[in-house]
Nucleic acid binder design. Sequence first.
DNA 1: CGGGATCCCAAACGATACTG
DNA 2: CAGTATCGTTTGGGATCCCG
Lengths: 119, 119
Amino acid sequence: MARFNFQGEPPTEEKEDVCSLTLAQNVIAGRWKIIILWYLSRRTRRFNELQRLLPGISKGILTRQLRELEEDGMVHREVYKQVPPKVEYSLTQQGKSFIPVLNTMGEWGKKYMEIKQNE
Amino acid sequence: MARFNFQGEPPTEEKEDVCSLTLAQNVIAGRWKIIILWYLSRRTRRFNELQRLLPGISKGILTRQLRELEEDGMVHREVYKQVPPKVEYSLTQQGKSFIPVLNTMGEWGKKYMEIKQNE
DNA sequence: CGGGATCCCAAACGATACTG
DNA sequence: CAGTATCGTTTGGGATCCCG
């Protein structure tokens, strides 16, 4: 059954899509977040490990991106009370549910790279 | 056959993933780009139409985001030489190949929204 | 109608020094 | 080791005005 929209008013379904995409956009906004999520999708990582994996990132900004991902419920932070300190970062259930997005995005990126190289 | 990596050196495969994800990150970086791509995925849109769909965006910034998407080969800009001017934006083939990412991201966002509401 | 040009501001990023 | 605190810089977004 066709759906009519007077004056091009957007249907509710579209609004929902826009809303959820905006939400996703907010969560992954940040220069390093997608890559951080991807590294954590492979295994748990320590702070220093992440810093080594992310070339050129400073401790301050890495801390902030991780804190924001934590606030958004994507990342779990496990502190081991010992000296020297040890902190491990991993994906929460919600963070893990984001992995399909990373995969789709990665596949797209690969094709995109090939095309760019053949230009 | 197992793969050995001395001192945790990342395998080539991982580097490729990181590289392609970084590429994707660069393309979608920008507050409105994901939403713009999504609106264009549904149909061709005129400039003013996009501005109405994106609440609060100014002409200047909308122009810039569209130009960047154009430079990245995601969006096609069709100018009709007439008065008053008419410009239509649509997805290129490469832009269309990004739709699966938008879909996956949208699905994730919907689940994420439900969870947040039940908290 | 679809911009371009300019200015301004806030946020994001980054470098450095210090700390338990 | 894993931060915090501070500061400086850069980038991006937004507002405004002008134009063909």
